[in-house]
């Protein structure tokens, strides 16, 4: 390792860093450009964690390169400095290597505990009643059911800005994961089970929604548009779907649920209010029993139960 080599190495790193910076300037990086309190909080957790880790990482890098440089064998002084048996510094010093990282991890643990509760996907956002949207992952598309509005949409979800949205999710297909990076982190969806994700958009805009977990052939095409609009635009949108769409009941759902790839956006209205519950219960019992069972159940019971407390 000569001085020239080190200089060349440093220059390369700087040049690479500059290229990355130029490239990323103006790029769309949703996780780093949050549009809602959840994504913002999650980014905050990342930032704090990163800074705390730097307390350990920077000394490690400084020590690695300076020790490598100072104590290289071809340096004349190295013979004089050499202490081959120095293997055990004082207990106090050794304790430092245990205690410093431990303190950082202790701080991180507090953050982990508090933030896990604060950004618990099941935790309701804000005081007002949330807009509930039922989500069904299908092969290979997303079905969104609005139980309060009686409409449904495929591969597109719309909600008013600054209104808490409660996604209640299941799958009628292999396990998947529901993710709108601009608004906040993901939750898994599984057949026969219900999970929840509470999100809120502060800004109007169209955000990309993703399918996170491999679910088979068409999974890469399972993206959807998540649109945050004004309340008036949202109401208008709901009304227009009621005017123009076909109903979604168990028959049309069966057609929809057939595997298909890269599906265009589609709308349904009105929607059978028991449909979501039927989908969740589908794998629990044979179909004829299910229909009987569902009739005896109080309406909406499924939706308020989560598979994991």
């Amino acid at each position: 390792m000569s001085r020239g080599n080190i200089l060349a190495g440093l220059l390369t790193v700087v040049a690479l860093g500059a290229c990355v910076a130029v490239y990323l300037h103006g790029a769309n990086i949703p996780v780093l450009q949050p549009h809602g309190p959840v994504a913002r909080g999650e980014l905050w957790v990342m930032t704090v964690t990163l800074l705390l880790c730097a307390v350990v990482v920077i000394p490690v890098f400084v020590m690695l390169f300076s020790f490598a440089w100072m104590f290289r064998a071809d340096r004349p002084r190295s013979r004089r400095w050499h202490m081959p048996d120095w293997d055990h510094y004082s207990v106090e010093m050794e304790l430092i290597w245990w205690i410093v990282p431990s303190i950082i991890i202790a701080i991180l643990s507090v953050i982990a505990w508090r933030s896990s509760h604060q950004y618990d996907p099941y935790r309701a956002l804000g005081r007002g009643a949330p807009l509930e949207i039922q989500v069904v992952a299908l092969d290979w598309k997303w079905l969104f059911i609005y139980p309060q509005q009686g409409i449904a949409s495929v591969n597109m979800v719309e909600f008013p800005e600054n209104v808490p949205v409660r996604f209640v999710l299941t799958a009628d297909a292999p396990m998947n994961s529901f993710w709108i990076p601009s608004l906040g982190g993901q939750i898994m969806v599984m057949p026969g089970m219900t999970t929840q994700l509470n999100l809120l958009a502060n800004d109007r805009g169209t955000y990309t929604g993703l399918s996170g977990n491999l679910s088979g052939r068409g999974f890469a095409g399972m993206t959807f548009a998540a649109q945050s609009v004004t309340q008036a635009e949202f109401d208008q949108w709901v009304a227009s779907i009621h005017d123009t769409s076909l109903p979604l009941d168990s028959t049309s759902y069966k057609l929809l649920a057939k595997p298909s790839e890269n599906d265009p956006v589609a709308f349904y209205a009105p929607v059978d209010s028991a449909l979501y519950g039927q989908i969740v219960m589908k794998s629990m019992m044979p179909e004829h029993e299910m229909m009987q069972g569902m009739m005896q159940m109080p309406n909406g019971m499924m939706m308020n139960e989560s598979s994991m407390p």
Partner: peptide
């Protein structure tokens, strides 16, 4: 040491559940 330390930081990031929600998968 260089790469593993950086990768380890990424790991600590992923260990914070709320950060993991945005980075998992």
């Amino acid at each position: 040491v260089v790469l593993f330390t950086l990768g380890g930081v990424a790991g600590v990031l992923l260990a914070e559940p709320p950060a993991d929600y945005q980075l998992h998968n």
